[in-house]
Amino acid sequence: MLGFILKRIALLIPTLLGITIVSFGFVRVLPGDPVLLMAGERGIKPERYQKLMEQFGYDRPIWEQYFDYLNQLLHGNLGNSLVTKQPVITEFFTLFPATVELSICALIIAVSIGIPAGIIAASKRGSFWDQSLMGTALVGYSMPIFWWGLLLIIVFSGWLQWTPVSGRISLLYFFPDVTGFMLIDSLLSGQKGAFTSALSHLVLPSIVLATIPLAVIARQTRSAMLEVLGEDYVRTARAKGLSPARVVGVHALRNAMIPVITVIGLSVGTLLAGAILTETIFSWPGIGKWMVDSISRRDYPVVQSGLLMIAIVVMVVNLLVDMTYGLINPRIRHD
C-alpha cells in the first residue's frame, strides 16, 4: 500500500509540471493583456504601456517568465495578484474554506440521496419507481445551473420566504474568521442563532451544486447494482433465505460501490467547476468566482497559481479515493 501511495505521489510531480505549463500558457494565449485591460477606454500612452509591461516583467521572453515562475513556485511563492496586490496564497486560503464547505454539503446531499435512489431504481428495475427516479436524474443532469439556482431563489426565498436569498450568514452576525468554515465559526462565536442562520444559507446553494453529481451518482449506482444483482453470490445469498434488504444492502451494495466511489471522487472536479456558477448566483465568496473574475481581468498570477492549487486539490482527493478502494474491496488492495 505504501509503495502504491509513493508511486502515485511520484506521478503527481510530472502532472503538476504539466499543469504549470498549461495554466501558464492558457492565460497568455488569451488575447489582451492586464495593462490594456487596466487602462480601459481611457487608453494608455505607448511609452507608459512599455514601462508597465517592464514593471510587471511581461516584456521578457515567455520561457524566461515561465522559468522565473517555476523558480518562485519552488520557493513557495505563488506570486501576488495584479489587481488586489495581495499574495495569491493568502487569497486562496481565505476563499477556499467557503468552497470546501459548500462542496462538502453538496456532496453529502448528492451521496445521501443519489445512492439510495440508485439502489431503489435497480431493485425495482423497470418499475414506475425506476423510471421516475432515473427520469428525474436525467432532468437534474441536464439542468442549466444558473436557471435552476435563480428558480429556487425566486420560489423559496422570494415567494415562500423559507430561505435567505444569498450570502453565507445573516449580516446581523459579525464575528472574526477562525477556521473559515462558517458552520464551525458560527458555533465558536457563541452567538445565538448564528449556526442556524449559516445552515439556512447553505441549503439552496448546496442543493443547486449537488444536482448534477446527485444525478450522476444515482445513475451510476443503479447500473453498478444491476450488474452485481445478477451475480452468482447474490443468487446464493437469496437462496440462503437472507432478507432482500440484507442481500441488497450488504452483499450487493459493497461490491457495487467501487465504480460509485470512483464517480464520487471524480465529482470533486465537477463540484469545483459547478461552484463557479453556484458561487456567482448565491454571492458565495469562494474560489470559483475568484477564478472567473481573475480570468476576465487577465490577472496572470492568480489564474496560473489558482489553477495549480485547484489541480492539486483534485489530485489529492482522487488519490484518497484510490486508497479507499482497498478498504472497500480487499481483493484490489495495492500491495
Binding site: 435563480l150 431563489i153 426565498s157 422570494g158 420566504q161 436569498v165 444569498s166 454571492s283
Partner: peptide, 20 residues
C-alpha cells in the same frame, strides 16, 4: 453601513425584495 457583495443582477433584486 454594510456592503453585501452580490454580483448577479437578478439576485440583487431578489435580495432587495426580501429586504436583505
Amino acid at each position: 453601513l454594510i456592503f453585501a457583495i452580490t454580483t448577479d443582477n437578478s439576485v440583487r433584486i431578489q435580495k432587495l425584495k426580501a429586504n436583505e
